[in-house]
Design a protein around this nucleic acid. Sequence first.
DNA 1: CACAGTACTGAGACCTGGTATCATTTCGCC
DNA 2: GGCGAAATGATACCAGGTCTCAGTACTGTG
Lengths: 143, 143
Amino acid sequence: MTRPRPERSAASQLAASGRRLTTPRKAVLEALGRADGPLTIEEIWEAVPDVGRATVFRTVKLLLELGLICRVVLENGSVRYVPATPDHHHHFICSGCGAVEEFQHPPIDEAIRTLAESAGFELSGHAVELYGRCRHCRAATPD
Amino acid sequence: MTRPRPERSAASQLAASGRRLTTPRKAVLEALGRADGPLTIEEIWEAVPDVGRATVFRTVKLLLELGLICRVVLENGSVRYVPATPDHHHHFICSGCGAVEEFQHPPIDEAIRTLAESAGFELSGHAVELYGRCRHCRAATPD
DNA sequence: CACAGTACTGAGACCTGGTATCATTTCGCC
DNA sequence: GGCGAAATGATACCAGGTCTCAGTACTGTG
Ligand SMILES: [Mn+2]
Ligand SMILES: [Mn+2]
Ligand SMILES: [Zn+2]
Ligand SMILES: [Zn+2]
């Protein structure tokens, strides 16, 4: 007997707000899934030839709101998108290969909470992005 | 007897790279100093009537590179600028009054270093931005 | 099945933050 | 004062992103 559990599939996430998992939406999601790194909007668009540009923008915004994808801000300020783990996490972005690794590390969040408390801030959210070189890139060019 | 110490004035920072502290640059810096919160480029431009738009952009970029001002990314993604403390710090951004408070909190940086080490990342930088309501806004509308 | 109503779509006009160009001005230095 | 480098303002331009709108795809109700 299958116990009912909170549904997290894209379709049900969308359905919960009266939306549908349409062909263009599925295509964008799959394009991001296939890619081995974060994509720009333009790259998504290229990967999804029959979808209009406006629809790509609309879809990315929607998927962001639903938490199905993440916006990643590179060190130079440009933004790209990756499929998301739905849980709270942060990003490490490799300047060598462009890979994005999600991580979670309770001590960081803990330290943030502690600081906010002692400073009298009421936190609604926080962003932590790390920049540097990943294990693979270090191995490739140790220097 | 005044001991020579590392000069950090805007003028000397600029001079160090063969640049000059010109009237427009001084004006932009002063506009940011006068403001009681972070400004957009457009707001800076309005505050500095005789300076061309391109020069405002150029100046902001230059002051950023020199670390004389900070780019602050709001929760909605829009960007604003504030005068900077030259030391390493992070930002707390109040969604109530828009104020930006700088803070530094070694445990956060410590936790980040620890994580990076254990994950095999070679860090080149990191960003931490906190969002929420400041002490004053909480007092005003405790809700 | 017919039909009504809503969600969604693509094309293209449009808007806006930012850059490139270039002729002119400012400034430090001799 | 005169020279060359740095800086400036006007303006054309570009790139991301949004808006509009007429048409399409679904959903669900009878
Ligand atoms: Mn993510
Ligand atoms: Mn700052
Ligand atoms: Zn890498
Ligand atoms: Zn506040």
